[in-house]
Design a protein around this nucleic acid. Structure first.
Lengths: 203, 203
DNA sequence: GTAATCTATGTCAGCCAGTGACACATGACA
DNA sequence: TGTCATGTGTCACTGGCTGACATAGATTAC
């Protein structure tokens, strides 16, 4: 990896860290792009070359998450029941979280805090997830050999899977200072969901 | 109802109709507040006294929907299983839709079209619904006598209910020109969800 | 009917997010 | 070392949104 590349990832992380700290200090809404750019000594214009917008600072992990899920889905056997495949995909995301570096873990915890203090951001995050849902649902539907646009079961399965992850993520409304604790609750929630469904519902 | 009041609702609907038409003509993103305000001959400043922002023009129905759901929930017996109560709440929303005036129905169909052509707006809508979910989940949890902040079953039940409504709403990806058709599919989806769950799962 | 009041609206000035265009500087590579 | 590619800053601009203030219109009391 060349110097250029290294510098870029360094800048990207610097922006992210500065932004998360500012969000925690003074709130998301009252933090301006100018402030963030100022604290890492780049021009505001440059900020937008690293993140598509202010939102992106708080939604970037979706990019990673849906990529992992799609990759996992593709490796699962085609005749596996959809929700089983999805569970594996969910767990792959959680595995990735648990394997992250201490720095990444710290970022994730800060992000969790920021989201926790701002319902509107949670809404944005859910909205972002919904866009991913459509992609996943199409994948599931085509694996099952049904119409990707109108098969309700595929869409429901994906929606339930994402809801599960989300509820697991936000449900401990108290302060959390450990990434593994969060992941543990998300795993628990996956099992809870499985126990709520009729056996073979997604066959 | 005084003259003042009547004039206000008239203006509100005029704004909404003008906006929806503009969105359909030239797209949501390329329509400006100035254009909308101009076409109903009010100042842009006044626009923001009727709608909180451009988003609101496309999310207003959530206000109505969650209000109906909350009202319905409160009238249900306290010992009823949560998802049963929620199903009634969902159906109350659908009943309200079916009972709407032809003008309202037309607005709703236009809205459906606008959303259909813009994934980002769907994301916004889902995000808005997620904010309502929290309120509903707290209501459900307190009815069940459990901690509104940490009871995962309540949150899951609400999340599943809202997912059901959403999938029913968006799943017919083709053109729809009949409100009843949409409502019918949403009802079908509620029943589909019920058939997927383990009997007594929410007891 | 008139006066006092309350409220909806328009005007103005301004902040912040986000984008395109262009010039410049810095790393990559022959 | 020179050439090319790519990242960065500056500038100018659009559009969403808000606060402050003055005014025009509706409401209420007398």
């Amino acid at each position: 990896m060349g110097l250029r590349e290294r510098k870029k990832t360094k800048t990207r992380l610097a922006i992210l860290d500065a932004a998360l700290d500012l969000f925690l200090e003074q709130g998301y809404d009252s933090t301006t792009i100018d402030q963030i750019a100022g604290s890492v000594e780049i021009s505001p214009r440059t900020f937008f070359r690293y993140f598509t917008g202010k939102d992106h600072l708080v939604l970037w992990f979706h990019d990673q998450g849906t990529e992992i899920m799609m990759d996992t889905l593709r490796t699962r056997p085609a005749d596996e029941p959809p929700f089983t495949s999805l569970s594996h995909a969910l767990r792959a995301v959680l595995d990735d979280m648990e394997g992250s570096t201490p720095d990444d873990a710290a970022r994730f915890l800060k992000l969790h805090q920021v989201l926790d203090g701002n319902p509107r951001l949670v809404g944005l995050s859910v909205g972002k997830a919904a866009e991913a849902e459509r992609v996943l649902a199409r994948e599931i539907a085509s694996r099952r050999g049904v119409d990707p646009d109108s098969d309700r079961l595929s869409h429901l399965a994906v929606a339930f899977a994402m809801s599960t992850l989300r509820v697991g993520f936000e449900c401990p409304r108290r302060d959390v200072d450990d990434l593994h604790e969060i992941v543990r609750r998300m795993r628990e929630t996956i099992e809870l969901t499985q126990s709520l469904m009729r056996p073979g519902w997604d066959a």
